[in-house]
Amino acid sequence: MNGIHDLGGMHGFGPINPEPDEPVFHAEWEKRVFGLFATTSAFAGFSVDEFRHAIENLPPAEYLETSYYEHWLHSFEEMLAIRGIVTKAELDARVDQIRQGGQ
């Protein structure tokens, strides 16, 4: 698809700015999302191709404003919802529960 992910040759993104002495992960949640790829594909049986396509389905503005591991999270959410394993409503309810001090 002619999506925003197809970045080759685009102008206007500015300098690259590599981070000196960059850690492998920048937050605990990034580690959990990273580990969700292998653990989730093991039971849900998705391919890396389906995984990438779910990332490409992000709305363009959101794609550019979110980070690499946020793209991964979006992909897992989409693929698990399509399979009926974790619905959006179920996840949103759990997020609310955590916000209110639950687990």
Binding site: M1, N2, D6, G8, G9, D49, E50, R52, H53, E56
Partner: peptide, 12 residues
């Protein structure tokens, strides 16, 4: 090619 589905062909 301009499929609306997944492809690994870069547009450029």
């Amino acid at each position: 090619l301009h499929p609306t589905t997944h492809t690994r062909l870069p547009g450029y």
